[in-house]
Every structure is written in structure tokens, then in C-alpha cells.
């Protein structure tokens, strides 16, 4: 006689499954890093991925960065006008972009474009047995598929963040000049002087960690697809959702950590 599963059985089973997933993800993420210290290393794949993830993301990062900078100026200026302190707009936009919006929004944009791409590409390879074929020919998929993608993203996202920060300030400057009648030199002087080394390091650290999250989650979801082409679609969506949530959650803790370290070290 088959015993019906109780609610506690279902909850325990579900908890075990989730712990197993976290374990699998952690192992894959760790492996993507440890692979860097032994051979073989797929340099050409790394360059291909940097081209696809990095160069391919430049247009959307620049376009959105410009308008985010502009809208930041318009929003902050509306408050500063009330106190007659519109000259502080450069400070506010600069700090917000470099510390927070640059790394977070760039990573979220790259997540939308690349975590989904990575998950669907690897998922399609998995369901068509290309990953098994690779293993059958003596290639470790974590070295050939995961490490180049993770490393390429970790190298590309900080560079994209720098571009986004800069173009955001350009956008902010344009908005400040035409909307607030601020001078270009005044805006840039305040924007640059407001920044400290700790702000730039905070933005850099965040973009590296966010890049690692989005690439490793994309790879994990791609390599654990279940259920054929329908499963590929599901995994692609999950990769974007999980990466985005993880980035925003990580942002909170990283901000707290960065502010603490800045206070102690600088």
C-alpha cells in the first residue's frame, strides 16, 4: 500500500532539494575559479566571450547610462532648487553613479542580456547532448564552457561600469547645462572633487562581485536544464530572476561592508 506524503515530508523534501541546488551551484562557482590555476585554459574562448559579453553590451550600457545620468540630475535638481543649492547636483550624481547606480544598473542590464544568453546557450547544448559529447571527447565542460564565461564577465563588467559612470556623468552634465543653466566646468569640477578613492573601490568591488553572480548563475541554470526546450526557456527566465535578486541583495550587504571599510581604512 502506498503511503500518502504528509506536508512535513513535502517540506523536508523541498528543503533538501534546495540545499542540494545551493551545494551544486557553490561547487560549480568554486570550480570556475579553481580552473584558472591549472591547465588547460581556453584563451580563445575567453576572448570570444569577452567580445560577446563585453563589446556586445557596450551600446545598451552607454545608451541607458546617458539617460540615467540625465534623469538623476533632473530628479536631484528639483530638490536642490528649493534650497538654492543646484551646484551640488554634480556631487550627488557623481556619488550615486560611481558608488551605486553604475555597478548595479550595468550589472542588471548585463544580466538581462547575458545571463539569459549564457543559460539558453548552455541549456540548448545540454539538451542536444553537446555537453555530453564534449565530455565524451575528454573535455571538462566547466573549463571549456563555464570558466571562460565567468572570467570574461568579471573582466568586462567593471570596464562597462566605468563607461556607464562616465557616460552617465556626460548625460548629467548635458541635463545640468540645459535644464539648470550650470556651467560645464562647474559641474565636472564638483563631480570629480566629490569622489574619493573609497567610492571608486566600492563601485569596482561591486561590479566584480555582481559580474561573478550573473555569469555563474547563468552557467549553473544552463547546465542544470531539465525538460527539453521548454526547460531551456524556464531556466533562462530563472537565470535572469535569480541573478537580479542576488545582485540587489548582495548590493545591500556590499554597501554596508564598503561603508564600514571606508570608515576604517580611509
Amino acid at each position: 500500500m502506498v503511503r500518502e506524503a504528509s506536508i512535513s515530508d513535502i517540506l523536508v523534501g523541498s528543503a533538501k532539494e534546495n540545499v542540494l541546488r545551493v551545494q551544486e551551484y557553490s561547487y560549480l562557482a568554486l570550480q570556475s575559479l579553481t580552473n584558472l590555476f591549472s591547465r588547460p585554459f581556453y584563451g580563445q574562448d575567453l576572448l570570444d566571450q569577452m567580445d560577446s559579453i563585453g563589446v556586445g553590451s557596450i551600446p545598451i550600457v552607454l545608451l541607458t547610462g546617458f539617460f540615467i545620468g540625465a534623469v538623476m540630475v533632473l530628479q536631484t535638481a528639483s530638490q536642490f532648487v528649493r534650497f538654492g543649492q543646484t551646484s551640488l547636483t554634480g556631487d550627488a550624481v557623481s556619488l550615486a553613479l560611481v558608488r551605486e547606480l553604475g555597478p548595479t544598473l550595468t550589472s542588471l542590464l548585463v544580466t538581462g542580456r547575458c545571463a539569459s544568453g549564457i543559460a539558453s546557450e548552455l541549456g540548448s547544448m545540454l539538451v542536444t547532448e553537446q555537453v555530453d559529447a564534449m565530455r565524451a571527447m575528454g573535455t571538462d565542460p566547466s573549463r571549456k564552457l563555464v570558466t571562460p564565461r565567468v572570467l570574461a564577465t568579471v573582466l568586462a563588467v567593471p570596464l562597462l561600469t566605468v563607461m556607464s559612470d562616465f557616460i552617465g556623468l556626460v548625460g548629467g552634465c548635458v541635463a545640468a547645462v540645459f535644464s539648470l543653466r550650470l556651467g560645464v566646468v562647474q559641474f565636472w569640477t564638483r563631480a570629480i572633487n566629490a569622489l574619493e578613492l573609497s567610492d571608486i573601490l566600492q563601485g569596482g568591488l561591486k561590479s566584480i562581485i555582481f559580474a561573478f553572480i550573473l555569469a555563474s548563475v547563468g552557467c549553473y541554470k544552463g547546465l542544470t536544464v531539465r525538460g527539453g526546450t521548454q526547460g531551456v526557456g524556464r531556466s533562462t527566465t530563472q537565470a535572469v530572476v535569480i541573478s537580479s535578486v542576488m545582485i540587489i541583495v548582495a548590493d545591500t550587504f556590499l554597501t554596508k561592508l564598503a561603508l564600514y571599510l571606508a570608515d576604517k581604512l580611509f
Binding site: 542536444t128 547532448e129 553537446q130 559529447a133 565530455r135 565524451a136 571527447m137 575528454g138 571538462d140
Partner: peptide, 23 residues
């Protein structure tokens, strides 16, 4: 181990059902 298997698999040929060519 997986590392030993990767080296071992170079001694066998595997023809997959749908070919499994790298597209």
C-alpha cells in the same frame, strides 16, 4: 574520478543518437 575519466574517454569514440555536433 572525473579527471581520470576525461583522460580515459579519449580512447573511446561515441556516436550520439542525433549526432550531438557542436552547432
Amino acid at each position: 574520478s572525473e579527471r581520470e575519466l576525461l583522460a580515459f574517454r579519449r580512447e573511446i569514440g561515441f556516436v550520439f543518437q542525433e549526432g550531438a555536433l557542436f552547432d
